[in-house]
């Protein structure tokens, strides 16, 4: 007789990979054991598909419900949830879509999914108290250059060569159905965050985006400044740095690692 650990592993394979081995350990009670296992599998897949649909409504609308269910099925099998909080499930769906052959023609789809996840994650992010710019007072310039910043957990930066902001807007339930998006409309650099119990996002100038997105990766201030200057030679650090604090983005400041 298998150990419980082995039986659990085998049951997991039965649910996620249709592996038939566990059926031998299940009583039929008047049915095929597989029919009983299928009841559990059906629940797992329908509820997880619903979770993904709720997090990715625009992706679902862009590909239609049946294709979405097919993509979700493949995703769930390859990337089952790692934990019981289902508001965290689906973080890697954009990356999955980027390599999913069946939708490789929809070049903008993974970036739309990325934006939707940023919006979703912002809603559920932990609360944090922003720092005031005063916390930088008295820090020597050399030390300042090496500083790293921790942002409000709801903040994320999304960039795309496609107009994903317009795609998102035109695929909202209340959007004008006659509106179209020109895919050649150009790249976007977006900042997504939760503010006053609402998730908001906006387009940033290239230099500002490079500056903030670099800091978001916990890279030092000097490096973020370089990235910003590369994106926009006119980038002004003396304005950009206080703005981070004025907008309540920074919740912790630390030395470079």
């Amino acid at each position: 007789m298998p150990t419980w650990s082995e039986l659990q592993a085998s049951f997991t394979r039965a649910l996620l990979q249709d592996d038939a081995a566990v059926a031998g350990a299940v009583l039929g009670d008047g049915l095929e054991p597989e029919a009983r296992i299928a009841l559990y599998r059906h629940h797992v897949f329908t509820t997880l598909t619903a979770v993904l649909k709720a997090a990715y409504p625009v992706v679902c609308r862009l590909v239609d419900g049946r294709f979405f269910a097919y993509a979700a099925d493949c995703y769930i099998r390859q990337h089952p949830p790692a934990g019981p909080c289902l508001f965290e499930y689906g973080a890697s769906f954009a990356r999955f879509l980027a390599t999913f052959p069946a939708c490789c023609d929809l070049v903008y789809l993974p970036d739309v999914a990325w934006l939707e996840w940023a919006i979703h994650a912002a809603w559920y992010a932990e609360d944090a108290v922003p720092l005031d710019c005063e916390c930088l007072r008295g820090i020597a310039p050399d030390d300042l250059a090496r500083l790293t910043f921790t942002y409000d957990p709801s903040v994320s930066y999304v960039s795309s060569p496609w107009p994903i902001d317009r795609i998102w807007h035109t695929n909202q339930p209340d959007a004008d159905p006659g509106e179209t998006v020109c895919l050649e409309a150009g790249a976007v650099d977006l900042e997504v965050r939760r503010l006053d119990n609402e998730v908001t996002w906006r387009s940033l100038a290239r230099g500002t985006f490079a500056f903030r997105a670099t800091l978001a990766e916990h890279r030092p201030l000097a490096e973020a400044f370089d990235a910003a200057l590369t994106a926009d030679p006119a980038f002004d650090l003396t304005t950009a740095l206080p703005e981070l604090f004025a907008e309540g983005l920074v919740v912790a400041v630390g030395p470079a690692r």
Binding site: L16, Y40, P80, P81
Partner: peptide, 14 residues
Amino acid sequence: IANGAYLNHLLPLV
């Protein structure tokens, strides 16, 4: 939960 995967159902025990 088994092998690091969470299967969102209350699954039966032996």
